[in-house]
Structure formats: structure tokens, C-alpha cells
Amino acid sequence: MASSAESIRAYSGPPVFSFGFRPFFLFSAVWAAIAVPVWVASMALGDGTVGAMDGRLWHIHEMLFGYLAGVIAGFLLTAVPNWTGRLPVTGLKLAGLFALWAAGRAAGFLPASMGIVGAVIDSAFLVVFAGLIWREVLAAKNARNLPVCLLVTMLAAANIAFHLRGVIPLFGPGAERGAVAVVTGLIALIGGRVTPSFTRNWTAARGIAKGPTAFNLFDAAVLALTGVALVCWVAAPWSPLTGGAMALAGVSNLARLARWRGWLARPEPLVWILHLGYAWLGAGMILLGLSALVPDAVPFTAGVHALTTGAMGVETLAIMTRATRGHTGRPRVADRSTIAIYLLILSAALVRVSAPFLGEWTVILLAVSATLWALAFAGFVLSYGPMLWRRSL
């Protein structure tokens, strides 16, 4: 059987469908740059709705189940062949999977009379994708990554629950929290692998002996605590018990991050951005914990956006830039445009998390954050789009 590299070299179709990261990274970034301005415009210039959905709900859905689901697909379609030794999904199969994702984005604009049709179309992508990941991991007997399969399945279930909110209203907020919890769990799990690994590679190449601490029982305990805290948060987000668990998990993740010694790699943005993304995870969990313990002092939305705009926005752009450069034969070194992208997304997160604390400035800061977010992803499309669309070097 041909190796993954041989299979990719033998592929002669459109370059964008030669590997999973290409279409999903590119068009997820396009969508991230477009969807937030669409939502803002619906509030400022329209009646606050997008398609048949309240604009706020559409925004939440498209960030969690549109943008993030697309980036997760691009990452896993690239990583799973390395984990399992099986051939990557390319060509027509990849194009078909991408078409399902794109159809879901278009379905969000269907009228209310086609709501059921739109929900089915949108739900199909994550269901099919979850099945694909299960097939690859099980076929390779790759037990280590079964938790990843479970988390993707949970994301698919959360999307279905989101669409059922009209029938069972409680499903809506639970689905939103469930999706945030799933992606947070994926960052803790996979970010907890790649961040110390890439940092170790960077320090070792420069003869720095004491790099990141290797995975041990402390990391396992932090992951377990994080999982328990997130389950509590999905079930009872305003419980003091949940607040304590989330705050403790956040502090524990920051302690875990410190053990990876990210300051050693401060000369290379492709490395330190991973550490800053993970730092937002710890900060977000602490803020959500405090919002349950002292709700008058810490707004709930500050914690949510520390995880979404912060941890998820920063971490996904960090992975997308690094993976694109590496898999297209370019040096794993950040150029000026990449640094600009990082500064824009970090600023977007900082402004968005600060906004609920600043009273009369909140609306203006939301607009500023949305602009910075859109510019970060537009910058990725302009700088990295040609790398993703064309053949590798």
C-alpha cells in the first residue's frame, strides 16, 4: 500500500483537494471573516435576523458549528493519517465532504418555511465527518485517539440539539455550552500535545537542554479535572460548585502551561502563539468560574468569549498558519503578515473580553472586536490562501 506522502504526490486533481487542511482552512477562514460582519450588519442595518434565525443565534451557530467545525475537520483530516498510518481523504471524497460543510453554511440563509430542510442539511456534515473519523481510528486500532472520536461525535450531537431548540427550548443553551465545552476539551487534549511537542522541537534544535516537561500524571489529572468541570458547566453553569471546579481547572491549566516553558521560544511567533492560545483557555475557565461565584463582578459573556474569541480564535489561527507552512513545504518561521494576523486576533480577543466590564463602551468595543476579528481572518486568507490553493513548493 502506498504511503500518505506517495498518495499525495500521485494525486493529479485540483491542488485544493489534495489534502484536508487545504479547503477547510481556507474557506473556514473566509467564512470567519464574512460571518461576523454579516451578523453585525443584521443588527445595525436590518431587523436583527439572518435567514430565518435570530441574528445572535445565527452568529453563535456559525462560529461553533460552521467556522470551528470546518477548522477541526481540516486539522483532523490532516492529523489522523499520521496517527493511524492510513491514507488521507483526497480528491472527490474530500470535495464531497467539503460540499456538505459548504451546504450547511448556505442552509443558514433558507427561509423559515424550509427550516427542517436547512437543519438536516446543516447537521449532515458533522454526522458524516464523525463517522469518518471513527472509521479511520477503529480500522487502525488507534485506541489513544478514541477520545477525539467521542468529542467530534458530541459536537455533532450538539449541533442537532441546537436545531431542536424550537421543539425542546432547553436544548438550545445546552447545545451552545456543549459545543463550547467540546472544543475546549479538544484544545486541552490536542493543544496539550502539540504545544509542548513543537516547543520541545524548537528548543532541542537550538541546544536548549531543559525544554517542556514531559506528559505525566499531573497532565492526566488536569485533563480529568478539565473534563469534569466542563461537564458540570454544561449541566449547571451558575452553580457555585461548578464555579469552583471551573476556576480550579483554569488555574490548573495555567500551571500545566507554565511547565511547557513557552518563554524559551519567545523569538519564534509560530511557537509562542500556541502558548498564548492555551493561556486563553485557562483564563476563560477562571472567568466562567468567577461568573458563577461572583456574578455581579464577572459577566458570564466575558468567560465565554475568553474561550471562543480567545482560546479558540487564537489557537485555530496558530494551528492553521503553522500547518499550512509545514505541509506546503515552507519554512516554519513566521513572516510579518503572520505576526500581524496574530496581533489582530489577540487584540480582538482582549477587546471582546474587556467589553462587558466597560459599561457604556460595550457596544463600541464589540464593533472594534468584530473588525479586528474580520481583519485577522481576511489577513489569513490573503497571506495563506495562495499556499492552500496552489501546489506545494
Rank of each mutant, 00 (worst) to 15 (best):
A2D: 04
S4H: 02
E6L: 00
E6H: 07
I8R: 07
A10S: 07
G13A: 02
W31N: 12
I34V: 15
P37F: 06
W39S: 11
V40L: 02
G46M: 13
G46I: 08
T49I: 09
I60C: 08
M63T: 14
F65D: 06
F65E: 07
G66P: 13
F75E: 11
L76R: 03
V80N: 02
P81Y: 13
W83H: 10
K93A: 14
A95H: 09
L97D: 10
L100G: 06
A103T: 01
P111F: 12
S113P: 09
G118D: 02
I121G: 13
S123P: 01
F125E: 02
L126F: 01
V128D: 03
A130L: 04
I133F: 08
W134K: 01
N142K: 11
P147I: 07
V148N: 03
C149E: 06
T153W: 04
M154K: 01
A157E: 01
P169A: 05
P173Y: 08
R177F: 12
R177T: 10
G178K: 07
G191C: 09
S197K: 14
R200P: 02
N201Q: 08
W202G: 10
A204G: 04
A209Y: 10
G211I: 11
G211H: 05
N216F: 00
V222D: 08
L223N: 12
L225F: 07
L225H: 01
G227R: 03
L230T: 01
W233R: 00
A235S: 02
W238I: 07
S239D: 14
L241V: 10
G243K: 00
A247L: 01
A255G: 11
A255L: 13
A258M: 04
L270P: 01
A279D: 00
A279N: 00
G284P: 11
L288Q: 00
A292N: 06
T301R: 09
T301W: 06
T301Y: 05
A302H: 03
V304N: 09
H305G: 09
G310C: 07
V314K: 03
E315G: 15
A318C: 06
A318M: 07
I319M: 07
R325I: 08
G326V: 11
R330P: 00
L343T: 10
L344N: 06
R352G: 14
A374N: 04
A378V: 13
S392N: 14
